[in-house]
Structures are given as structure tokens and as C-alpha cells.
């Protein structure tokens, strides 16, 4: 089912990203078109170096595109300055990282509270309520005073999810959220994401694991900086002349 621009939470057109190092130009993304609807759960996959993380960085406003359009929640965000991007990241986007990225010197509560401390005008009581709600959603409310080092990997990632949720973002961007977890904890995190989706969250997840990608409503495949259909991707990967190393891995 096609999503119109007005229905999209994320709408990107002809998005390109070129990295310049010395005299070499690397085209990381080449003319990407993508729409993600509100409440949708999308998985992005593809081989190493295909541009997944670059695309996620741009979607999360951690990076800016070289060309093309990017509309988030109806606002053009492709060419904002650093401060404006920081503000939108804080209010519209929740990140879940592969390596959890919890701050070791902050407690669980403080880690989840962190994005809220960067918002002006929010009362302490409201902040506390939001943090506790988020922790309850990921079943970690009983560990508020613990430090990350006192938690297992799965628990740390749940706290990271709570942090992503605490700001009530428009979209959760997850970068290989199970990459640093064993299969049991990985499954638990995927279940959690499904629960959040069922509650109405919009999720965009990068993963290279087809089992986890299958949890999403829609899968997007990237290859050499372009979005390709699943069949096309398999064909490309099967061609040893095109990508021998990836083929061998597969």
C-alpha cells in the first residue's frame, strides 16, 4: 500500500550522501526515496557498507544529506543547523543503539531522564512521571537507582529503550538493537519493540539479521546506497562478480 506524503511521518526524496576524503568521493546513498507512516514498524537491512547506518544517521538528524529532501512530521529538516537539529532530535526522535550507550556514572533513572533535562520548561514532577512511565513500560522500574554496570546486557538495552521512549518521540530509531546481545536477550528486546509498536509507536530498525527483520511490518533492503526490492537484492548478492565477500558470508 503506497503512503502519500501527507500521511508520512518521514518522507524522503532523491536523498544522496557523498563523503569526501582527500580526492576520493564515496557515494554512500544515491537517490533514496522512502516514506514511513505514523505507527509503522520498518526494518532496514542490507550487507555491510550498503548505507544503512548512514541512512539512519540522516533519518535521526545526526548527519545531513548531501542532496534531496527530508520531511519529518511535515517539517523540512534536511538543511537545518546544528542547534535546530538538536532540538528536533530531542523532541521527535528516540534512539536505541547497538552498544546501549548508557552513561556509566548516571543511574538508570538519570540515564532515562537525560533527554528530558535538555528540554526547557519541564517540571521536575513531570520529568519524574515520564521517566517512571518509560521504565515501567520496559519492566525496569525496580532498578531506578542501579548503575549500568550493575545490569545485564538485556537490562541495559531495556533501559536504553526507556530512554528513547521518555521524550515521547514521533519515531524510535534502532540501530542493530540486538547486535550486542545473546539470542535470548535479543528475542526479549525484539518482543519489547513489538509491544511498543502494538501500543502505537513508529519504529525504524536497522538489522542484518533476517529473523529480527521479520518482526517488522515492512522490510526495506539497501544495496550500494539504493533501496532495492527483496528479489533484486537476493539476485545482486548471488552475483559473485558483484559482491563476492557478501555472497560468501550469505
Amino acid at each position: 500500500m503506497a503512503i502519500t506524503e501527507s500521511e508520512s511521518l518521514i518522507h524522503i526524496e532523491e536523498l544522496t550522501k557523498v563523503f569526501y576524503t582527500d580526492e576520493i568521493e564515496t557515494h554512500a546513498l544515491s537517490g533514496i526515496h522512502l516514506d514511513i507512516a505514523r505507527g509503522e514498524y520498518v526494518a532496514m537491512s542490507g550487507p555491510s557498507g550498503c548505507g544503512k547506518s548512514t541512512l539512519l544517521s540522516i533519518l535521526g538528524l545526526l548527519d545531513t544529506p548531501t542532496g534531496g529532501r527530508y520531511t519529518l512530521n511535515g517539517k523540512e529538516v534536511a538543511n537545518l543547523d546544528f542547534a535546530a537539529r538538536s532540538r528536533i532530535r530531542n523532541q521527535e526522535i528516540g534512539f536505541i543503539f547497538q552498544s546501549f550507550n548508557l552513561i556509566g556514572d548516571l543511574t538508570v533513572f538519570e540515564n532515562v531522564e537525560l533527554p528530558l533535562t535538555y528540554r526547557s520548561g519541564m517540571s521536575t514532577a513531570e520529568r519524574k512521571e515520564r521517566v517512571m512511565n518509560s521504565l515501567e513500560r520496559v519492566h525496569m522500574a525496580h532498578r531506578t537507582r542501579h548503575y549500568p554496570a550493575q545490569l545485564s546486557g538485556g537490562q541495559q538495552q531495556r533501559v536504553a529503550v526507556a530512554r528513547a521512549l521518555s521524550g515521547s518521540p514521533s519515531i524510535l530509531l534502532a540501530d542493530e538493537p540486538t547486535g550486542n546481545l545473546d539470542s535470548k536477550n535479543g528475542e526479549a528486546v525484539m518482543k519489547l519493540l513489538q509491544e511498543l509498536h502494538a501500543e502505537g509507536s513508529t519504529i525504524c530498525m536497522v538489522t542484518h539479521d533476517p529473523r529480527f527483520a521479520a518482526h517488522a511490518q515492512r522490510q526495506i533492503h539497501l544495496f550500494d546506497g539504493k533501496v532495492v526490492a527483496e528479489g533484486e537484492l537476493l539476485q545482486l548478492l548471488a552475483d559473485p562478480a558483484h559482491n563476492p565477500s557478501t555472497t560468501a558470508t550469505l
Binding site: F82, R89, Q91, F95
Partner: peptide, 16 residues
Amino acid sequence: EREMALRAAVGAGRAR
């Protein structure tokens, strides 16, 4: 650096 990158990622501006 990673801590600061994370702070920036979750919305901390330069001034903050």
C-alpha cells in the same frame, strides 16, 4: 567522546 556524542544524539545543544 562517546558520552558527549550520546548527549548530542539525544538532543543536547553545543551550549548545553
